[in-house]
Amino acid sequence: MTPLPFAPLSSGPLLAGAVLATVASLWLLLPNGRDNASIRWLGSLLGLAALAAFIAAGRRLGGLGEEAVFLIVSLVAVISAAATIVSRSPVYAAIWFALSLAGVAGVLLVLGAQFLGVATIVVYAGAILVMFLFVLMLAQPAGLAPYDRVSNEPFLSALAGAVLLGVLSLSIGRLSAGPATCCQPPSRTAGSPSTASQSTTTPSAAAGEPAPAAGDTASVPAAGMTATAVDPLAENHVARLGGELFGRHLVAVEAAGVLLLVALIGAIAVVSRGEAALAGDTTPTRSAAGRSATR
């Protein structure tokens, strides 16, 4: 492991700037009733700036190849996720979401979760998203609906989301930034995370003040492991995941199966009952729905 070249994510000004840029970008990009291209450009730029701030605050990974792959897939996931929520058209949103899923699948693969990466693509992009699109085709009126062109409380919502993101980032950064902000100067000569985490725990315990919970729990399990050990999850990955799933979590798997069945039956029951209720209901909404569905 190489020494950490960058300041930790918790460095105040950078993080604050990232949060502010996120708020402004989302506020500008979210549908607001005015379709002004220049505002959207500005918002996109601010968003990219925020993204850059996050990248800058991020940490170097072990190797260039891994770093580049991670950077690309995560950028795909995050940018298309942002595009999902700011797209006026729900169909575009769904397609952006599919792209975001691809990015997420890539992140999962980088994280060594081969099965989950593939499953995400298959289940989400292949099944769930297609279902969404079907519904959209059934229900979406022609053109942009008025409610797709406006947002509900965009500023407050963006602020809430960005502040949450800021707090989360702060906590994530403090996973290792604990000693840096604490009384002990950083003595990270050793590249081993085990020593780093040991130095994380000791001073906070010695100081007797409440240590950051996230940092603590994250560091302790890592203490006894060696840096050179290979990923225990990598070998015979799918087989061992299956063994784990059907061994230790068999009851939960059965429960999940029952849940699927119940959801299936419930969905069918609600559809049939709703249609029976609507059969006697000759309000104009029914005809409006039918008209928009056939269009």
Binding site: R60, G62, G63, L111, L168, P193, A222, M225, V230, D231
Partner: peptide
Amino acid sequence: MNTVQSLPLLQNALTVG
């Protein structure tokens, strides 16, 4: 590459999440 207990990888992935 496939080293475990990579704190930066964890942090970056958590940030993406």
